[in-house]
Design a protein around this nucleic acid. Sequence first.
DNA 1: AATATATATCGCAAATATACGATTAAAAAC
DNA 2: GTTTTTAATCGTATATTTGCGATATATATT
Lengths: 113, 113
Amino acid sequence: MAINKKSEFLSDEIYLSDFARTLGHPARIAILKTLAERHECICGEIVEVLPLAQSTVSQHLKELKNMGLIQGTLNGPKSCYCINWEKLEEYMDSFNKLTTELLTKKPTALCCK
Amino acid sequence: MAINKKSEFLSDEIYLSDFARTLGHPARIAILKTLAERHECICGEIVEVLPLAQSTVSQHLKELKNMGLIQGTLNGPKSCYCINWEKLEEYMDSFNKLTTELLTKKPTALCCK
DNA sequence: AATATATATCGCAAATATACGATTAAAAAC
DNA sequence: GTTTTTAATCGTATATTTGCGATATATATT
């Protein structure tokens, strides 16, 4: 690859693709579902639910946190995670805007005959 | 990584994460936007729009095609691409179901104090 | 027939992502 | 004060993704 060409795209496209890439692993979707269900979890609870080692789960949590989709606060030796709804909804809105934009351009006739 | 743990997740989570991963690169989002805008494009038109080499664009097109999101038909030496709306809407619906499912579980009180 | 055009594929290099065990750090329990 | 518990980080191995040039293939054009 040598050079990362990502920066040459529109910032909107980068923003959306970063969100999509973050959801691009089943573990991270499962984590969001678990957190939504339970409202908050300590790391260990999430590890129990996933078929992955603790260190791997910790990495996925870090990635979700870096994207702002979840937040974790220390609670003694434990670390309590929950969804950052504001941020999640912001990303969802952007995604919905894209899908709406695409759908409004859906042609009536068939293409590429 | 040694072993791919993806298969140990729920098929629904795998399905969604595959879709998300496919949108996880700005080039593929840009391709979908271009195809929606123009209804159909030959490969060369897409190459013109993107800041990537022809062979790289061809790879991204292949990935979108493998996921069923676009279809390409040969037209002489040219290859005409368009969006597979049925499939795209199917993925979007699944994604919307996830977001709805998450949002219905949004708590009223703050978590992780 | 020879040449030009268009695009898919191959082969390779580099970057990124995934996964785990081992270690570290910090608080809790004893 | 020592031990245990919890989770983050480090180091490392492997897999996957991204990107390009070169090549192959197939159709148009001349």
